[in-house]
Design a binder for these strands. Structure first.
Lengths: 236, 236
DNA sequence: TGATTTTAGGTTGTATGACAAGTTGCGCTA
DNA sequence: TAGCGCAACTTGTCATACAACCTAAAATCA
């Protein structure tokens, strides 16, 4: 039963699978992985593929192949950031997970921004929204995404807690798959654009009114909607 | 018991050589590497070796091979984690900032946990709280902090979105100043302990009831309180 | 001429077979 | 029993072949 995945290479497939088994503890440090011969059988791929997958794992510092003996799982050095460094944003599930985490941060940011914004920060937020609306009418996704990100950044920075902006910048570089931006989906359906504009305005208005609760609710609604929109984008 | 230095494999040699050329700027972002065929000539090795070396570079995020086109050097993203890697948790302001970010994530986690928890996850949460209460009565801060962290982790994992737990573990190692744990403040005032216990119970009960709103509110109150408690701890 | 299609060549992805080099464990021998 | 040797297995490397895909030049068409 070989299901042909469309875009991903076999190497990536095997690598991710093995990596998952290692990080999930299915293979513990010191364990020996199945031999290349067994893995070729197990995954139904050639030895070339298996070897390149193992080479990638070695590059990640996860395994240590020893000629004649086998491939052994390395004791992972504790790196609390590792989980976020090379997230596989091509996988839909991973991206939804990241988006959910981002929702948590941005909802709180909206609430804090409503309480703490300065006049100049208000100005930046307003300007970002106007810019976004301008692109929304005419634009392709790429410019749109940039302007959208700027609006969210403006909100995060208006918390006057620099960690929120830092976190968002960190997520922003991870959470948007490249092929969505430069890919085969130049525009969103019209209804989406109108909906997005309305959601953005609700957020901005709540913040400008200083209404913490409403700001949180508006941001939550917006990002929940983003989850469904991302799904359709990736599946089209 | 000195281990004989393992002979470097050809793959490692080629990989290091290419990596050096990339990081030294000899190949700039966007450039195309020589084709596999040329590299086999250049290094006098088989294509297998070249391919595994390139696979390692891809795992490191240095190159992006595109079928039919070539292998391209990736734009080196500025490390998005840099801002979080070496935060100065001894500074009160920084710590409050981190705690606020953590609040964002944990509030959402509590809400999601209320919606998605499994029976076994409920069990873990209950157990963690009981453990915490046990230490709270008699214990010093250190055990207390560990048990407390376990409770928060149990909640984060009950979202069934692994990113929340990962984020919390990442923050957990950063957000607690060492001198608070092993330092001059062995116990909290009695009133605080009772308050903490009550707050934890409120959180857990709301989650077990599946009450998303109440879970969020309880967690928010708890962490807001933590901010003030931290302040007094650090200033004492 | 200018735009469009076709085509040829180059490049990565994968499969297969073969042999070299090193490790491990089992059985045989003394 | 202790030691040795060898067979089987494992990773490292080489070579060849073909498929899938991209790019740009060449050929064709309006």
């Amino acid at each position: 039963m070989t299901v042909a995945p469309k875009r991903k290479t076999l190497v990536v497939e095997v690598r991710d699978n093995l990596k998952a088994q290692i990080t999930s503890g299915q293979y513990k440090p010191g364990d020996r992985l199945p031999s290349e011969a067994r893995l070729t059988e197990e995954y139904g791929v050639s030895r070339t593929v298996v070897r390149e997958a193992v080479a990638a794992l070695r590059a990640d510092g996860l395994v240590d192949p020893q000629r004649g003996a086998g491939v052994f799982v390395i004791e992972p050095k504790p790196d609390p950031m590792a989980a976020f460094r090379n997230v596989d944003t091509e996988r839909l599930s991973t991206m939804i997970e990241m988006l959910e985490l981002r929702t948590a941060v941005e909802v709180e940011a909206a609430g804090l921004a409503a309480q703490r914004r300065s006049p100049s920060q208000e100005e930046r937020i307003i300007k970002a929204m106007e810019e976004l609306n301008r692109f929304a009418a005419a634009g392709g996704i790429e410019m749109n995404a940039e302007a959208d990100f700027e609006l969210h950044l403006a909100v995060a920075d208006a918390t006057n807690n620099p960690r929120f902006g830092e976190f968002l910048r960190m997520m922003g570089t991870q959470v948007i798959p490249r092929r969505v931006l430069k890919g085969d989906n130049p525009t969103l359906p019209d209804g989406y654009q109108a909906m997005l504009t309305q959601e953005h305005e609700d957020i901005v208005n709540a913040i400008l009114d200083g209404d913490e609760q409403r700001a949180r609710a508006a941001m939550r609604k917006h990002l929940k909607g983003s989850q469904t929109r991302y799904r359709t984008l990736l599946r089209s």
